[in-house]
Each structure stands twice: as structure tokens, then as C-alpha cells.
Design a protein around this nucleic acid. Structure first.
Length: 880
RNA sequence: GGAGGUUUAGCUCAGUUGGGAGAGCACCUGCCUUACAAGCAGGGGGUCACUGGUUCGAGCCCAGUAACCUCCA
């Protein structure tokens, strides 16, 4: 093994090996419990970003952990056709050659999109490979696959037959750039600087005027009434009269309706039923005409008279200009207000009267909500996201599912060419020549909502995967698509499979740039995960993503932390090198954990290992990856590398053959466990080292995950080791204080408080010598204390450092006084606590006892320091 | 307007059943100790946003305040 970890070399070729060995495939072992995850299918629109890397890393950790634990694991990959987004990028590409989709026609255009899809699907698979994701490619699905398309049709037809899917003319959110309908949640509301235009509408009889206010003056051309709140005293006499609509020759009625807020503005509002959802309702109640004044691209139509052909915002300017010129504009108030923007194209969404297909949400939502009250509910991690889900479900509106696009699942509805009759079915009507299929496609989320079961073979409920792996166990996704996707999967699964689609939903946050801002194309601050992998390796990226946050919280990308992740792997790499270099001919088969020849270090590291194993397993099961990572980091770096490995050097160099064999056994046993513990998080490097230990034909992917063996939880060893560690650390501290590097010796007298400590110190004399480098080392219960000496107290012993002629007495007195003060204050703190009767009464016995022990300890240390201080002061006095 | 989140060391963040505040990076000091100088050893640095409350005991539980962020309407 080279002295430095080389991520490029380590990761190269591994993924292919795994695929060749088919280790990612489910074991299909009938005795094993199944565990399944479906990947949130990325859009085939483009490359994967760091958010995908994070999301899939978490899934890979879960699935690799379960796989190693012996579950029959399936991680099903796939991709989403992403209607609007993909169609938009392909259209943009064609636009460069001055071709529109209409030039090509539907069929040829779709062929173009499939070409795009093929290219990007390949890229995405390459990215998955780079990240090391253990998915089963034999089961990869695409939302426009034959099978999934059938599921979509099945669902559409069944919901239609139940009356849950309906078609109708309503106000929907319209994206004038993509020229399609959008659902409510595809609209982003942004606060923007706008204006409130106060307009004067003259009464037709010339007896005055009414003042209305609007933020969208261009829609006035489509006004078909003016309304006041029902019974509003100020205006009730006007009801039934007509106003003359400025800039037109139309007269429109004054009506009263409860919807109007009398307190807001002037209390009079213009009613535009074809361009506003509330006005639409008002219009229906009063049988008002619906006058659409815009085209589907956001330009004004012929109904707008002289403004026809102008873009809506141009028209706004012109209309305001004309209103002003003709004296109809009262004032313009600057105002910040919330305006809907298309989540996809970014343009201002236009509320528009339009015929669309809808999913009636009341019953579906009700069932999903009621299910959350049962023990069959979906568990959210962190659980606060259940509230997000429930709140949305409680307030959900009907879902617009038709999109005026070409790329997607064409709606399985046909209209009779003559009668206009509607036919909905999985197959076209028999006399198909007399029918025309609806040209629209379904919202992409309509198909993604079926993903957990459509990918498993549904609607064939006898499909083997459906029977074995559905419902899935865990879904991992970011909080920003709880509404779009998670919620819809839940209600569709309940409706069509009678079960929840997954037991657990693990919600994570978003990745932000180093400065905390969102990564976005417009800011140009996006980071390509593949660049990061190139620079630091997938393992380091995975480690960073896993350990840098708490569930549900956003994470900032950080090159600094990437570097420290890489350093950690380099540390593991070098620790492994050390072990392998010292194994010589020793192989895993030679491992014998022979307790009779174990040192305290051996027992201790085994205890710490099994403690860590228990902790890590518990944390992984709770999806607390950060906590699991920290436990591993501390164990590996602090316990294994800084202490255990250093201590093995003594045994390997000086020990008997038997002792060496035990040490080699423990070194390898622990390393092997470390690799398996880490493998779900950093699959590549652990496999590489595993191959160095075992042979290339084995794979750590299917090795068993460590489980805690209580036999090794040796509390005595942990206690003893802590004494040894304190001893060594104290000596190092003294060295630092008196400026003595390890290359120079320091004499050390240890006075043990008990026979046990004495014996322990003597047994471990060789460790003390190695770590403290003393010239004289005395260990006894009664030390002859020299005059010029530095004193330290550790648990169970006093340490004396004779510095004849070298000790700065004044400095030492200062130091001792400071230390005395410290122990004094500690004693006071404990005494105060123990003097509190309520504490002694109410606190748990072990907490009280711990305080008493500490008190005794401090008292002891205090006394020693005090005695020494007196002695040294006397000595100083004698000198003078 | 409603809901949620955040506020802990210079910076970025942990802190899981309430029992003496931690990591990484940065900083200071000393070490090329044959696994690793991308390392080792030692060290400095925090009224845990603020105000009350519950409790023997609060970074952690409760109420309120402030600032910032997000979602929904």
C-alpha cells in the first residue's frame, strides 16, 4: 500500500467489479426479511447536482447497512421524464437552429426528446456509478416505460370511472411561456414591487362614478361587472345600475356579493371572471359572461380591441396611459405584493379560464389524513414534517393534471368528432377513426405518484416484486417535494394498493453554497458533484454529506470540510497500512482473541469497539447518520490510532511470540470491524483495504455488519486504561510546561495509593517507559520525595518529577497555587451541592454518589498540592 | 395573516430520554517518534440570542421577546 491515500486509484474500477459480482442484486433469500427502497427518480433533463448526491448517499447507506445485516435488499433505480422541464430544454436546443416544435410536429419532436433522454440517462447512470450507489440496474424504470404507462392509464381510467377525475372549465394557473396549465404548487409566490391602480368607472346614467382598484389594470378589458359587499350601506343604491367600462363601449352591471371585502380599498371591486379565480366564482353566482382577453402566450387577443397583439405587460402600460389621458386614472399607489411565478419558466403566471382535467382531492385527502391516525401511518423523520404533510393535505385543492405539452403520458380520453361525446379507456375506441384523442399529457407528478408500486409491477398485483418488496421500507427525499411527491404517493398508494407506499420517510434539507446562499444556475454558484469526486473522491464526498448536518437541516458545502473528510480517509488508510505492515504472514484465519495474553490496551480497545458498534447500529436505525459518523470518527482517530496503535508498537517490538500474536489478532480484528462499520458510508476505500486483507474475490459489500458482543464490554479495562491515559497525558503536560521534548528523558516517581494501582502500574511499566521516556522510573506505594520536585496528582496515584537544580521554584510555587485554587473551587462546588438536602433527596442515587466520589477525589488532590506547596515554600525560605 | 426552522468557540456546525459545554478549520507552543508532517503532543478561546418560569439541578422542558431563514395563504 502506498503511503498516501489515492482516491482516484482506489475508486477506479471498483464499481464495475461490484456489478460483475452482482453484489447489488437482492439475495432473494426466502429466509431473509426484505428491505426495499425506490430511488426518487431524477429528471432526465440534466445532470445530477449535489442534492442528488446527498439524497442517494443516504439511501445507499441505509441499503448497504441492511444488506450487510442480512436483509434481502432491493434498491430500485429509475428516472423521471419531467414533462415541462425536459420539453423546455429540447425546445431551447432546437431554437438554436431556429426550429420550433411545431415545425417538427408532435411525433418527430418526441423522437428528439427520446434522443435527449437516452443521452442524459447514460450520464446519470455514470454519475450513480461514480457515487458508488448499490442499485439493481436490472430493475431500472422510467416513468414513460411501457409498464409504468399502463399503470398511469389504469389509474386515470379508474379514477375517472369513480368520478374522482373530471374535466371542466375553471380558472387555472397558466404559464404563458410554456403555454400550459400548472398546478397550484408549481406556482411560486414572490413579493415584488408593483402598483395599485385606482380607476374611475363612470355610471352609465351619468350620475357619477365608482372607484375601483386593481394590480392588473390590463384585465379591466375583461370586466363583466363591478361588485360591492352585500348590503354595503355606502353603495347599495347603486346595485342594479350599470357602469360604462372605460376604453370600451360596453356597459356592465353593479352587483352585490358577500365575497367583496367592504373594508379593503374603496369597497368596490371590478369583476373579471375569465382572469381571476375569485371573480370566476362571483361570476358563476351571478351568471356573468366570461370574457377572455388574452391569448395563451400572454398577448392580448381580439377581445382587447386596439390592444390586441400586445404583450400583457405592454398592454398594461398602454392601458394605464390611455386611462390617464381620458381621466379615468385616479392614482397609482406603489405597492409590494405577492405575484405567482412559474416554478419552471420563471414567468409571471396568468390566472386563466381554461378547460382542464382535474383530480378531486377531498376523498383522497381524507383517507390519507385518517390513515395518519392509525398505526399504519407513514413515519416521518424528523417527525415535525408529518405536520407539514397534514397541514397541506387538510387545505389541498383539486389538482389540475392536464398539461398542454407533448412530452408525457397522453391523456387516455377521446372525443367523438361529431357528437363531442367523451370516451375514457385504456384502449382507443373501436371506431377510432371517428374519435380524436385529447392532445394533452398528464402532469409528470401524476406518474411519479405511482412510483413505489408502478415500478414493482402494479397493476399486476401478482408480480413477484410487488408481492415481495411492496410496500417499500424507506423513502429518502428533501423537504421541498413533500407536497409534490411524498403526499401524492401516499394518497395514490392508499387508493390503489390499500397500503402506505413506505413505512418511513426520511427528510433531509437542501445543499447551499459555502456562503449559505442557495445554489442556482442564475447565481452560477452551483458545484458539480463530479468535480468534487474528482478532487477528493466519492468516499470523502459521501462522508462529508453524511456527517455535516442533522436530519431535516440544510447543509453548506465546504471545501474545508471536504479536505478534512479526505484527511480522515487518509488516516484510515495509514492505520491500515500500519496493521498490514505488521501482520507479515499473519492472516485473518490466524485471529485468536486469547484473553490470557491480552494487555489492558487489547481489552480496552475491544470494549470501545463493541461500545461503538452498538452505538452506530442504533444511530443508523434511527437515520442519525451524523451521530453514527462522529462515533466512528472518534473511535478510529482517538482510540484506535492515537492510543491503541501506539501501544501495540511496544508489544510488537518487545513482546513474546504469543503476545505478538494476540496483538496482531486484535489489531486485525478491530481494523476488519472498522472497515465493515464504515463501508456503508465510504464503500470504495473500505473495499480496497478489505481486498488487501482478504483476497480480491471477496467483497466487503456482502460481508456481515458488525454487531455488539457484550462479552467484550470490559468495564475494568476501560477504567484501568483511563488511569494509564491520564498518567501519560500528565507526563506530557509536564514536559510541555518545562519545555522537555520527548527526545530528552524525564525522571518519574509514581506513588500509588493502593496495591491494585501499584500492581497495575508495574504490570504496565513498559508502556509507561515507552510513552514517558524516563531515565529513572520508580513505582511504589511509598516514594522518597526529593526536595526539588514537581508534583501532579492523577486518579489513584501521585506523580513526582525530580528536577534537582532545574526547577524554577518561584514558577513552581505559582503553578501550585493556581492548582490549589482550582481544587479548592471544585471542592466548594461539590460541597455546596451535597449540602443541598433537596439534591441529596431528589437526585438519583448514582448522581449523588458520583458527586461524593468527585468530592473525595478533589479533597485528595487538594491535600497533596497543599502539602507540596508548603514544602516547597519552606525550601525557598531555607534558600534565602 | 398562519406554520415551521435557526440563534452554542474567530468561522462552519454537533450536543438523542435534564446531572459539570464538544468537533472540524483557524490560532499559539513544541516535535521530521520507521502508519500518516494532509501527521504527533500540549495549549488558549464560549454570561449556550434575550427575559421569565418549571426543577434539587436547564444549552436541553414551558411561556414570552428579538433577529434571520423557509413554507403556506
Amino acid at each position: 500500500m502506498p503511503t498516501k491515500y489515492n482516491h482516484l486509484k482506489v475508486e477506479e474500477g471498483k464499481y464495475k467489479e461490484w456489478l460483475d459480482k452482482k453484489v447489488f442484486k437482492p439475495s432473494a433469500d426466502p429466509d431473509a426479511a426484505p428491505y426495499s427502497i425506490v430511488i426518487p427518480p431524477p429528471n432526465v433533463t440534466g445532470k445530477l447536482h449535489l442534492g442528488h448526491a446527498w439524497d442517494t448517499t443516504l439511501q445507499d447507506i441505509i441499503i448497504r447497512h441492511k444488506r450487510m445485516q442480512g436483509y434481502d435488499t432491493l434498491w430500485l433505480p429509475g428516472m423521471d421524464h419531467a414533462g415541462i422541464a425536459t420539453q423546455a430544454v429540447v425546445e431551447a436546443q432546437l431554437a438554436k437552429e431556429n426550429i420550433s416544435r411545431y415545425d417538427l410536429g408532435r411525433e418527430k419532436f418526441i423522437d428528439k426528446v427520446w434522443e435527449w433522454k437516452k443521452e442524459y440517462a447514460d450520464r446519470i447512470r455514470k454519475q450513480w456509478a461514480k457515487m458508488g450507489l448499490s442499485v439493481d440496474y436490472d430493475r431500472e424504470r422510467f416513468t414513460l416505460d411501457e409498464g409504468l404507462s399502463q399503470a398511469v392509464q389504469e389509474v386515470f381510467v379508474r379514477l375517472y370511472e369513480k368520478g374522482i377525475i373530471y374535466r371542466g372549465e375553471y380558472i387555472i394557473n397558466w404559464d404563458p411561456k410554456a403555454r400550459t396549465a400548472l398546478s397550484d404548487i408549481e406556482v411560486e409566490h414572490k413579493e415584488i414591487q408593483g402598483a395599485f391602480y385606482h380607476l374611475r368607472y363612470p355610471l352609465a346614467d351619468g350620475s357619477g362614478y365608482l372607484e375601483v382598484a386593481t394590480t392588473r389594470p390590463e384585465t379591466m378589458l375583461g370586466d363583466t361587472a363591478v361588485a360591492i359587499h352585500t348590503g354595503d350601506e355606502r353603495y347599495k343604491d347603486y346595485v342594479g345600475k350599470m357602469v360604462k367600462l372605460p376604453l370600451t363601449d360596453r356597459e356592465i352591471p353593479i352587483i352585490e356579493d358577500f365575497y367583496v371585502d367592504a373594508e379593503f380599498g374603496t369597497g368596490v371591486v371590478k369583476i373579471t371572471p375569465a382572469h381571476d379565480p375569485n371573480d370566476f366564482e362571483v361570476g358563476n353566482r351571478h351568471n356573468l359572461p366570461q370574457l377572455n382577453v388574452m391569448n395563451d402566450d400572454g398577448t392580448m387577443n381580439d377581445a382587447a380591441g386596439k390592444y390586441a397583439g400586445l404583450d400583457r405587460f405592454e398592454a398594461r402600460k398602454e392601458i394605464v396611459k390611455d386611462l390617464k389621458a381620458q381621466g379615468y386614472l385616479v392614482k397609482v399607489e406603489e405597492m409590494v405584493h405577492s405575484v405567482g411565478h412559474s416554478e419552471r419558466t420563471g414567468v409571471v403566471v396568468e390566472p386563466r379560464l381554461s378547460t382542464q382535467w382535474f383530480v378531486r382531492m377531498d376523498e383522497l385527502a381524507k383517507r390519507a389524513l385518517e390513515n395518519q391516525k392509525t398505526d399504519q401511518k407513514v413515519h416521518f423523520y424528523p417527525d415535525r414534517f408529518e405536520k407539514t404533510f397534514v397541514n397541506w393535505m387538510e387545505n389541498v385543492h383539486d389538482w389540475v393534471i392536464s398539461r398542454q405539452l407533448w412530452w408525457g403520458h397522453q391523456i387516455p380520453a377521446w372525443y367523438h368528432n361529431e357528437t363531442g361525446e367523451v370516451y375514457v379507456g385504456k384502449v382507443p375506441p373501436k371506431d377510432s377513426e371517428n374519435w380524436t384523442q385529447d392532445s394533452d399529457v398528464l402532469d409528470t407528478w401524476f406518474s411519479s405518484a405511482l412510483w413505489p408500486f408502478s415500478t414493482m409491477g402494479w397493476p399486476n398485483t401478482d408480480a413477484p416484486d410487488y408481492k415481495r418488496y411492496y410496500p417499500t421500507n424507506t423513502l429518502v427525499t428533501a423537504y421541498d417535494i413533500i407536497f409534490f411527491w411524498v403526499s401524492r404517493m401516499i394518497f395514490q398508494a392508499l387508493e390503489f394498493t390499500d397500503r402506505i407506499p413506505f413505512e418511513n420517510v426520511l427528510i433531509h434539507g437542501l445543499i447551499r453554497a459555502e456562503d449559505g446562499r442557495k445554489m442556482s444556475k442564475s447565481l452560477g454558484n452551483g458545484i458539480d458533484p463530479m468535480d468534487v469526486v474528482e478532487e477528493y473522491g466519492a468516499d470523502a464526498l459521501r462522508w462529508f454529506l453524511t456527517t455535516s448536518s442533522t436530519p431535516g437541516q440544510d447543509v453548506r458545502f465546504s471545501y474545508e470540510r471536504m479536505k478534512s473528510s479526505w484527511n480522515f480517509i487518509n488516516k484510515i488508510w495509514n492505520a491500515s497500512r500500519y496493521v498490514l505492515l505488521n501482520l507479515k504472514t499473519f492472516s485473518p484465519n490466524d485471529i485468536q482473541l486469547d484473553e490470557t495474553h491480552m494487555t489492558v490496551a487489547d481489552r480496552w480497545i475491544l470494549a470501545r469497539l463493541h461500545e461503538t458498534i452498538a452505538h452506530v447500529n442504533a444511530q443508523l436505525d434511527k437515520f442519525e447518520f451524523g451521530e453514527a459518523g462522529r462515533a466512528l470518527y472518534n473511535f478510529i482517530w482517538d482510540d484506535y490510532c492515537d492510543w491503541y496503535i501506539e501501544m501495540t508498537k511496544e508489544v510488537l517490538q518487545e513482546g513474546t511470540a504469543e503476545q505478538v500474536r494476540v496483538t496482531q489478532s486484535v489489531l486485525l480484528y478491530v481494523l476488519d470491524a472498522i472497515l465493515r462499520l464504515l463501508h456503508p458510508i465510504m464503500p470504495f476505500v473500505t473495499e480496497e483495504i478489505y481486498h488487501n486483507i482478504y483476497d480480491e474475490n471477496t467483497s466487503i459489500v456482502t460481508a456481515p455488519y458488525p454487531s455488539c458482543n457484550a462479552k467484550w464490554l470490559d468495564e475494568e479495562a476501560v477504567e484501568n486504561m483511563s488511569v494509564l491515559i491520564e498518567l501519560i497525558q500528565t507526563v506530557r503536560q509536564v514536559r510541555s510546561e518545562v519545555n522537555r521534548p520527548m527526545s530528552r528523558t524525564v525522571d518519574l516517581l509514581i506513588q500509588a495509593h493502593s496495591e491494585e494501582v501499584l500492581q497495575f502500574m508495574r504490570e504496565n511499566r513498559s508502556f509507561i517507559e515507552r510513552f514517558c521516556n524516563p531515565d529513572v522510573l520508580e513505582i511504589s506505594c511509598k516514594v522518597d520525595i526529593p526536595e526539588e520536585v514537581m508534583t501532579k496528582v492523577i486518579k489513584g496515584a501521585h506523580l513526582y518529577f525530580p528536577f534537582a537544580g532545574l526547577l524554577d521554584i518561584t514558577e513552581e510555587i505559582k503553578r501550585l497555587e493556581k492548582e490549589l485554587e482550582k481544587w479548592q473551587s471544585e471542592m466548594t462546588r461539590v460541597e455546596k451541592k451535597l449540602a443541598n438536602e433537596k439534591f441529596v433527596q431528589n437526585a438519583p442515587g448514582q448522581v449523588v454518589q458520583a458527586e461524593r466520589d468527585k468530592g473525595a477525589e478533589y479533597e485528595e488532590r487538594y491535600q497533596v498540592v497543599k502539602e507540596q506547596l508548603e514544602k516547597i515554600k519552606q525550601m525557598e525560605g531555607n534558600k534565602k
